[in-house]
Design a protein around this nucleic acid. Structure first.
Length: 568
RNA sequence: GGCCCCGUCGUCUAGCCUGGUCCAGGACACAUCCCUUUCACGGAUGUGACAUGGGUUCGAAUCCCAUCGGGGUCACCA
């Protein structure tokens, strides 16, 4: 099989979940490969042995698969009965840790033999001292090539490398200027002397990112590198290495970064921050820290440390959030997945953050809503923007609401159930137990008032559970006021409902109006609100007729009865 | 601080390359109104931006320069 003329890659390091920024990078790489009828590679950059894990590599792959961003080459993942990945061009393996002896070491030795790389024996601590000195003197630190000068011959260098004495390998940086050809930003020139002799192999024998990337991009035939702008500054190093080897440089495109709306970095620590604030508020309102710790099953000292921001434990944050019922911000793709977002909305929103099709709809409005299929036909590097973006959750939420409400009722129900099966198993079994008519009624009730599946779930929670308590202010206003008018109406309504031969929404609707008219109400509002309180404990619910029909006659009457008795 | 990147409504952006059709268009958010038995959905309307200052030009959001502002990066992390 001849190699395709366009090969892109997404190369995450498996040190956590897939970040939304990473998801966007992957999507653009995927889309460009599709558009050019090329190939898309997934490569796992696990050269940081301490922080990498197979578990997170697998999580990243699952998130990508869930988003619909499927790779043509890379580690294989079986997903919904299909296999994603594989090695059709025999360029694997796709985990860098597995390429050390076969790929990196030989290439490193080539450079050493050419005099373009050399072992260096300074310890990290020694270098740190030098760095601090330079900073104190307001100078830019650059490695001084001491080891290069000290061991001047290639033969001696090889001897040192083979001796087992601790060392790193450094690359002898070229003295000329480096130009990075970037299709998003234009040519970026780096002056001579800006590059120092960076490390290409660490003391543990693993290559650094800079080195592995260059060798892998070459050996995997990568033609286009799309990545975040934070890597721009690294690119001259990669170009310098490519030139040392005589490799052709791929075409680069550095994409703008994504931040929180307040301009801060979107990171996992945001979850800890949110939880910490909630905790501080709870304590300020008179909550006892010791009791809280006990309820959370956390050591008081631990909780205290968290509160003082001595640590950002995710586990602690999640316990606090669950207990205090606050929502932690979604940061990673997995978070959005659990919150009941649809992949299509996430892809659409992310694609628009830094790219734009630049097309108009027939009515003159901008074309903004599209899916992966559209991207695979229309994506272009030229239309990637240059300015950093802020992640506006409200817009994503709005997109998600639109995607969900555009789904046919059956499809909606199936997607909802699939989400619940993965994220809310108890609720999933409740959904599964419903008959077809009730399902349709439920979807109709919930779809327009929920922007995520999690919201849909809480919007219909009342169907599956009687009110645990009644909203005090609402009871005062809608049941007790006017000499208990609400309670009187409830009794009358209960009698009317009891006499209904059938209990579907239209029949119930007629009954509501009949009772309202009989009591000379200007509109059914007073009756409706009283009934809502009886059914849900609050004044918020789907349409009252639908809510009653959903509960059924017996359950509706029981709740009204319980409410009336409880408030006499 | 050095080096590099960027600067259009609160946010994401269209327009910029190829100056006039832009007293700058769309989307989300916000506000008001309509619909309505609540909350939503839906419909209508509105508020709101070319960072600043100089050039070039008959004409500049669009070209040039400077200033200011934001960001990235300065590891044996990626």
């Amino acid at each position: 099989m001849p190699a395709p003329h366009v090969v892109t890659r997404f190369a995450p390091s498996p040190t956590g979940h897939l970040h939304v920024g990473g998801a966007r990078t992957a999507m653009f790489c995927w889309a460009f490969a599709r558009r050019m009828q090329g190939s898309f590679v997934l490569r796992i950059e696990d050269t940081d042995a301490a922080r990498s894990s197979d578990e997170s590599a697998r999580g990243i792959m699952e998130d990508l698969a869930w988003l619909g961003i499927h790779w043509d080459q890379g580690p294989t993942l079986s997903w919904q009965g299909k296999a994603i990945g594989g090695d059709p061009y025999h360029v694997g393996p796709f985990s860098q840790a597995q390429r050390v002896k076969t790929h990196y070491d030989p290439h490193i030795m080539m450079l050493v033999e050419k005099g373009l790389a050399y072992p260096a024996t300074e310890s990290s601590e020694e270098l740190e001292v030098e760095r601090k000195k330079a900073t104190a003197a307001k100078q830019t630190y650059r490695y001084n090539r001491a080891s290069y000068q000290r061991i001047a011959s290639v033969a001696d260098r090889i001897k040192l490398i083979e001796s087992g004495e601790p060392h790193v390998i450094r690359f002898f940086a070229p003295s000329g200027p480096i130009v990075v050809k970037d299709q998003v930003l234009g040519d970026v020139k780096i002056a001579p002397g800006e590059l120092d002799d960076f490390v290409i192999r660490k003391a543990d024998g693993l290559p650094t990112y800079h080195f592995a990337v260059v060798v892998d991009d070459q050996t995997m035939g990568i033609t286009h590198v799309l990545r975040a702008q934070e890597h721009l500054i690294n690119t001259p190093r990669h170009v310098a290495l490519q030139q040392a080897f005589g490799f052709r440089s791929p075409i680069y495109g550095h994409m703008p970064l994504i931040f929180n709306t307040d301009g801060s970095k979107m990171s996992k620590r945001d979850k800890a921050k949110t939880a910490r604030k909630a905790l501080a508020d709870a304590i300020a309102k008179g909550g006892d820290a010791g009791q809280l710790a006990a309820k959370l099953a956390i050591l008081p000292t631990e909780l205290d440390a968290f509160l003082r921001a001595d640590n950002d434990s995710l586990d602690t944050a999640e316990r606090i959030a669950r207990h205090l019922r606050v929502a932690l911000p979604e940061i990673e793709v997995a978070d959005f997945r659990e919150a009941g977002y649809s992949p299509q909305a996430i892809n659409n929103f992310l694609a628009l953050l830094g790219w734009n099709p630049g097309m108009k709809l027939p009515d003159g409005k901008d074309l903004e809503r599209f899916d992966l299929a559209f991207l695979s036909e229309h994506f272009s590097i030229e239309r990637i923007g240059k300015t950093n973006g802020k992640f506006d959750r409200k817009k994503l939420l709005s997109f998600n609401g639109d995607v969900l409400s555009a789904m046919a009722d059956d499809a909606y129900f199936e997607a909802w159930r699939a989400w619940a099966t993965a994220c809310e198993p108890e609720f999933a079994s409740k959904l599964a137990s419903l008959d077809a008519a009730t399902r349709a009624l439920l979807v109709g009730a919930v779809k327009p008032r929920a922007k995520t599946f999690r919201e849909a779930t809480s919007a219909c929670a009342f169907v599956f559970a009687r009110p645990a308590s009644y909203d005090v202010a609402a009871v005062e206003k809608h049941l007790r006021a006017n000499d208990g008018q609400g309670l009187t109406l409830l009794r009358a309504f209960s009698g009317a409902l009891d006499k209904l031969p059938t209990f579907d929404a239209p029949t119930v609707h007629t009954a509501i109006e009949a009772v309202a008219t009989a009591h000379a109400l200007p509109n059914p509002g007073a009756l409706a609100q009283a009934t809502r309180i009886a059914l849900t404990g609050t004044t918020v619910s789907p349409g009252l007729d639908v809510s009653l029909a959903l509960l059924g006659k017996a359950e509706s009457l029981a709740r009204i009865q319980a409410c009336v008795v409880g408030h006499n």
